[in-house]
Design a protein around this nucleic acid. Sequence first.
DNA 1: ATGGCGTACACCGTACGA
Length: 260
Amino acid sequence: MRIVTWNVNSVRRRQEKVTEWLARHEPDVLCMQETKVVDDDFPAAAFDAAGYGSLFHGQNSYNGVAILYRKDALTPEDVRRGFDDGAEEDPQARILRATFAGVRVVNVYVPNGQALDSDKFVYKMAWLDRLLRVCETSEDAAGELALVGDFNIAPDDRDVHDPDAWRGKIHFSEPEHAQLARYMDWGLTDCLRLHHEEAGIYSWWDYRRLAFQKRMGLRIDLVLATASLAAACTDCVVDKDARRGKGTSDHAPVVATFDV
DNA sequence: ATGGCGTACACCGTACGA
């Protein structure tokens, strides 16, 4: 099974790029973030014509998550939109869960946070607290589970083009790293690092300043897996080609392959 | 040090992203 995470930065704007990518790569499951569309306007018909079923949890203009799945091979089960934890629902659409062939897929768009002294950073930390609580109370660390998405956190120095410039800043600060560590303690593993140890593998490049051409990026899009699923992970790569040329998202897809 | 670019909404600017 191949599971992909891709922050598409507007699914309507990127619809053609996404369907082309699906045709070329034929993943089993594609988790998207920043769909930026209400559910009534989600372009499900276009993906259906490409052979993919759609699950979506969106809102107007901002955020929004969706999962596409090969409809010839998979049927989603136990779909949950939002935190769905009994407390007041987050008005920001950032989490969508479903099970495919026994593999639990949790698709998240973690808040950006803007800056460490911002109210948005307080929200980011609280959001990550709540997600972990949801994992602990309604997901199974002993099962086959993938927590994937745009985490808006670069795990370590290898994941940042200029670690010393970024250290302590948003996406690369101590409190954010402490949050990631709690998820690892729950039982998750960073699938890309199971197979690739080198520095300089990024998944996001700023649209400005020719960042992509200058190889100035961050790895903030992650596929994390529980031990039993990680044991079945045969590779995890970033498809940098998807960031080349005009009309692309500022993020590239991260593709994880599992022998399940 | 700043702003660069891109997207959405709706108004021709503003909010937000990372």
